[in-house]
Design a protein around this nucleic acid. Structure first.
Lengths: 228, 228
DNA sequence: AAATTAAGTCGTCAGTTGACGACTGAAAAA
DNA sequence: TTTTTCAGTCGTCAACTGACGACTTAATTT
């Protein structure tokens, strides 16, 4: 960081580290690139240590001075908001809706395909920890956006399942959502167990998803009879 | 707190608040009673603001000086550990095992009965928030104890269900657990949604539990056929 | 080569935060 | 009444923490 030339100029330095091989000599980067690097490091950092973790340690992790963070993000909250937007909101894919509605495949296939992808690429350790930290903090950063997407997913799943089974859904909308939550919640909770409660998990993801989908479809049929 | 008598003695006080009607005059309590009160207040406090919330604010909430907390708990971590032990570990009931094994009732009845109680008295907002904060923090306070209890619950549920349905369970133990997790996870996730993700939840608890149990039992039968 | 731009750092401020030594005073014991 | 006990408080310390003014210096432009 600072090395030679300290003794030379008469300003006010506190020379301390004479040239050693590995001064942290921060490689200069273009603005956008450095910002992206900080954002990326910050995602992992806050996921690991919580949203209350300190900017000084983050800077250290990034290999830059703490002051530099404030060149890119006016406040810590701004940085947190960008992390949330990128990591949490950016983890939902539009193709899911199209694939779930693709009636050239069986519902069982579509559900298994979707949830395998969802578990593997969205319900990751990083995503779950950030989402949980954000949920627990008062300033729920952008809650409605996500719940709206999930609700739409649940509705598509219910509509497609009912269509294939040739039954009519209950008129009670909340009940319909809750039925779909049976599967979605079980899968989500599997991910939570695995990534948040360091459970000594053994069964591979795909196998678990397949089982949960099978149980859901079987349960769905039985439940529809019960309500008819 | 301090009022008169400041000016009288020559020590080193900084008198500031002459007698007003409402000095925070802390009512003196016996040791055990005060400790219990602090512990109780601390539970709600840390559940609300996280385990990183400050002892000063907690003391304020308790209506005592911050210093007093350290008369009862040598360090903040000690206080947190006691909160965890009391609120998290203390929320599991031994009767559940007996009731779940009571074959004079149907499995459906037993499961509904158990999970209604579990959701109402254990998966509360306070419990979930404390448990989640503890899970997210590195120092997982006492993880194995809980997971051991849950595992036992899952095993009882599987054994009883298989017995009533007259089928044999898969030999794969992890798979058996995962099947039971289908129900346990769905119910847990319902509570998480409701209490952690302030979801605009409408359906009453009991109705949701009944539905999840029904779907589980139907799915269970279908799954057993699939593996046979 | 000189001037300009912008990437990056130093040092510091004001407000926190866990912890604790020393003190106070009401109630119980002698 | 006097002494002892102990619940409870004050004030402070050292380390931390978000924020930022002022400065340094590598790279680019002229």
């Amino acid at each position: 960081m600072k090395a030679k030339s300290d003794a030379l100029r008469g300003t006010k330095k506190v020379s301390a580290c004479p040239e050693d091989g590995r001064t942290g000599a921060t490689t200069r980067m273009p603005h956008a690139e450095r910002k992206a690097q900080i954002l990326s490091t910050a995602s992992d950092f806050f996921a690991d240590y919580g949203l209350t973790a300190q900017t000084r340690r983050l800077a250290e992790e990034c290999g830059v001075s703490q002051r530099l963070l404030y060149r890119f993000f006016p406040t810590k909250q701004d940085l947190l908001s960008e992390v949330y937007r990128k990591e949490i909101l950016g983890a939902f894919k539009a193709v899911w809706f199209a694939e779930l509605k693709d009636r050239s495949r069986t519902v069982e296939y579509r559900l298994m395909h979707f949830y395998k992808d969802y578990v593997r690429h969205t319900l990751t350790r990083k995503w779950l920890r950030l989402f949980m930290y954000a949920s627990l903090s008062e300033s729920s950063m952008a809650p409605d956006y996500i719940s709206s997407i999930i609700t739409q997913l649940l509705e598509v799943i219910m509509a497609e399942t009912a269509h294939e089974k040739g039954v009519e859904l209950p008129r009670d909308e909340a009940m319909c959502h809750e039925i779909a939550w049976t599967l979605h919640g079980a899968v989500s909770h599997y991910a939570i167990r695995r990534h948040l409660y360091q459970a000594s998990q053994v069964l591979p993801e795909d196998q678990v998803v397949e089982m949960h989908v099978r149980m859901f479809l079987a349960g769905f049929e039985a439940l529809m009879e019960h309500y008819a």
